[in-house]
Simulated assay, not measured.
Amino acid sequence: MISATVTGQVWSTRRVDGLPPGAFLEVETDGTGSKMIAFDVLGSGVGERVLIAQGSVAANWFTGTPPPVDALIIGSIDADSSG
């Protein structure tokens, strides 16, 4: 899993068939500063810290035929346990 912060929304007016309801969000991964686009079904917002699963684990979370999703927000981080 990857921890990241949501930095923005990606607007998409057209989608491939089979993509479930949700939003595309830009996230910045903790510690690296690199950015990626993650699919969100939880309703996460800008500034929120989240957990992300990638690859087949992300796509296989959905029922039926796996959609073309490579990064999925799977949780919200409420507090950092290191501090």
Score class of each variant (00 low, 15 high):
residue 21 P to Q: 08
residue 55 G to D: 14
residue 73 I to G: 12
residue 9 Q to G: 03
residue 39 F to A: 07
residue 12 S to W: 03
residue 33 G to S: 03
residue 38 A to F: 08
residue 5 T to R: 05
residue 78 D to R: 15
residue 1 M to A: 15
residue 29 T to V: 13
residue 81 S to Y: 11
residue 7 T to Y: 00
residue 57 V to D: 05
residue 36 M to A: 14
residue 66 P to T: 11
residue 59 A to K: 06
residue 35 K to A: 02
residue 21 P to N: 09
residue 82 S to N: 08
residue 5 T to Y: 01
residue 69 V to W: 11
residue 75 G to E: 15
residue 56 S to K: 13
residue 71 A to K: 13
residue 15 R to F: 06
residue 74 I to H: 11
residue 35 K to M: 04
residue 65 T to C: 11
residue 30 D to Q: 07
residue 59 A to F: 02
residue 53 A to I: 06
residue 34 S to G: 03
residue 61 W to T: 12
residue 10 V to S: 02
residue 16 V to H: 06
residue 48 E to F: 00
residue 69 V to T: 13
residue 67 P to N: 14
residue 1 M to H: 13
residue 17 D to E: 11
residue 40 D to Q: 05
residue 65 T to D: 11
residue 66 P to Q: 12
residue 55 G to L: 04
residue 37 I to Y: 00
residue 40 D to S: 09
residue 35 K to S: 04
residue 13 T to P: 04
residue 80 D to T: 12
residue 52 I to H: 02
residue 46 V to F: 01
residue 49 R to Q: 14
residue 2 I to A: 01
residue 23 A to V: 04
residue 22 G to V: 09
residue 26 E to L: 05
residue 75 G to L: 15
residue 18 G to Q: 06
residue 78 D to S: 15
residue 67 P to S: 14
residue 38 A to E: 05
residue 80 D to V: 10
residue 68 P to L: 15
residue 75 G to T: 15
residue 15 R to H: 13
residue 37 I to S: 07
residue 50 V to Y: 06
residue 27 V to T: 06
residue 21 P to C: 07
residue 58 A to T: 09
residue 35 K to R: 12
residue 45 G to E: 08
residue 55 G to E: 12
residue 22 G to Y: 03
residue 9 Q to I: 10
residue 74 I to W: 12
residue 13 T to Y: 02
residue 75 G to F: 13
